[in-house]
Design a protein around this nucleic acid. Structure first.
Lengths: 354, 354
DNA sequence: AAAAATGAGACAAACGTTTGCACAAAAACT
DNA sequence: AGTTTTTGTGCAAACGTTTGTCTCATTTTT
């Protein structure tokens, strides 16, 4: 019952000129006269012309769409990251097609396959926890589909990525606690298999060394990140001869478990023991007995950077990509954020969260 | 640097048959002989043919893409909803293009505009809080682009929607508390301008009436949902002559504020006063002094249903849509979930109700 | 044995856009 | 004045797929 959208042809017919002239006029092609351009643009508005994207995609062989594969949207880290991706992509005229792997390697492979064929120009990927093979990514390179990894990076060579340096934030966190006067600081770390675990440890050690304190390995406990594991780790820390007066926990969940357990032992949170964690739960600012401070990993920024890189890659020719075997490797420094409900001490360095 | 993807033409050439035959063979068209079909399919695999989606979209004038506009992905309600949307859409061969309005009416309008022109076949929308005009949606109808609204429904006629009946869950919640022996139950409600506020009140009243108790309006306090507002509302409830022994709060944030304030007054949570809330923070199960139970609004299910409706709509002809002026109006009943300290995932049917 | 029906495949147009090339008219040079 | 250059515009092909129509050979019917 209604008018189908206007096409170039309709404009051409209405103005009695050729389709190609219309096309060029709308693109401000130099070989079209000013008067004609005006007339065409006028008519385009009049007929409320909108270019048929499908036709353009088809014609150009590009979809102006970038695929995003990430583990879990419900993790606030990723929902923040995708906001950064979305904003940046839209701003540059790209649209975003996303999907969740739910930390399943098989699903991840299927998604790569699905996104691959003629659908997306490039891919942004944060790999699943369980992914152990990487052929599905290697294959993309053969087909000249650029991929930028973010946050969770696969251990393969010659890739573009954006990630976060956990070490710096950890260093700041430990430093912060040392400046507060703590001398025995526990690190409730993750499992050894995680890269994030060793990064935290490195930052911890560096802060100790920097402050001319000797590193006590018994104050660093690995844990499987479950509530039970956390309780065991806490027990071990509390039994330490140098019982810690401050604890840095691997993430907010661990912090919550640890704090709950500590309270059950009548330990006063952020009094008997200060806690510092890593920012992954936005709600942490709302609850009682939350950690004093968090190490922020800037998911929005990571998403933004990764998207910028990908779009830059997309705007190069295949030749350029083949020739310059240069790979983007951007690392965002994590940073300590003081939980502002808890500010009692005036520190110059760390930033506070609104 | 290597092989461009195979096309129908390549297969045709390799087999010395026509393109149309190849196309029909791959679609199992009856007018193609079995032997030819076999040969074609064989060759397709051999050349690892994948249909060029852009060409198909162009040719068919459909994108097989549905647009999703929602306020905030970082709200866990919406991230769960989009999981439901995504899963359902992918399963039916559609892809999802989403964007956030960040509760900004102007942005929402722009997004509708962006999604509209030849990009998406249909739209799934949860409107922004600030949206007060609806022409941008009315216009879609003129252009035969179907829209299904979910959760946040605009107050206009003749639309398809999926939403959640808050009343039922509220009824259950109050009933649950009454069964537990409470006789004075407070309702810490939202502002009167919100539809959700009156729904909660209705459920509350119905549960009272059903149990042959008379409704005491002084036990229902409206509040602006800020921490300050919550504290004032709590004061008012605690000063009530029939000081409530249980409180139903508008949402989890309000619950956290109320609980924190109550604890500061040395009130024992879920002992002196029982709390029940509405599920919007997944983390609520991790913290101490959390509400006893939550009213679940099934975001995943809502997303799923809305997508199913939309795809059903897309598979009809415009004529059909014009003729049958029938509108889908699906309401999911909310339901009371007892907090059992277990992690809730984004599953379709997460009910662990005793 | 001739006519009709069926089966299998080919041809060509169409979708809307971009872009290399041709070509005319006007303007700028000898 | 004639030649070249510039400026503005049209023509047509191309992208990959789908689909209505047409052709031809084979089989069935009479």
């Amino acid at each position: 019952m209604f008018n189908k959208p206007a096409t170039l042809k309709k404009i051409a017919k209405a103005l009695n000129i050729s389709v190609s002239t219309v096309s060029r006029a709308l693109h401000d092609h130099p070989s079209i006269g000013q008067i004609t351009k005006m007339r065409v643009k006028q008519k385009a508005i009049e007929l409320s012309y909108e270019p048929n994207q499908a036709a353009i995609h088809f014609q150009k062989g590009k979809s102006y769409t970038i695929g995003v594969i990430l583990p879990e949207l419900s993790e606030s880290f990723f929902s923040a990251a995708i906001s950064g991706i979305e904003d940046t992509a839209y701003q540059k005229g790209y649209t975003v097609l996303f999907a969740q792997s739910h930390d399943d390697e098989e699903k991840e492979k299927n998604l790569v396959e699905k996104m691959k064929n003629q659908r997306v120009d490039g891919l942004l990927v944060s790999i699943s926890k369980k992914t152990s093979t990487y052929e599905h990514f290697e294959m993309l390179k053969k087909q000249s589909i650029p991929v930028v990894f973010f946050d969770r990076i696969p251990p393969i060579k010659n890739i573009h990525y954006v990630n976060c340096n956990i070490e710096t934030g950890t260093f700041d966190a430990v430093n912060f606690l040392l400046k507060k006067g703590h001398r025995s600081i526990g690190l409730l770390n993750g499992t050894v298999s995680l890269h994030a675990t060793s990064e935290r440890k490195e930052g911890y050690i560096k802060a100790m060394v920097k402050n001319r304190l000797k590193f006590d390995p018994t104050l660093v406990i690995n844990c499987d990140l479950t509530e039970e594991g956390t309780i065991n780790a806490m027990d071990s820390l509390l039994k330490n001869k140098r019982k810690p007066t401050a604890i840095v926990t691997f993430n907010d969940y661990v912090a919550l478990y640890a704090i709950r357990y500590a309270r059950s032992l009548n330990i006063l949170i952020n009094d008997d023991i200060d806690f510092v964690s890593y920012a992954n739960l936005p709600i942490i600012n709302y609850i009682d007995n939350a950690p004093l401070a968090s190490v922020e990993q800037f998911p929005y920024l990571q998403g933004q950077k990764a998207t910028e890189i990908l779009i830059d890659l997309l705007n190069r020719t295949n030749d350029e990509l083949d020739v310059e075997q240069a790979y983007y490797r951007i690392t965002v420094d994590s940073r300590l954020i003081i939980n502002d409900r808890m500010i009692k001490y005036n520190l110059a360095d760390p930033i506070t969260n609104p």
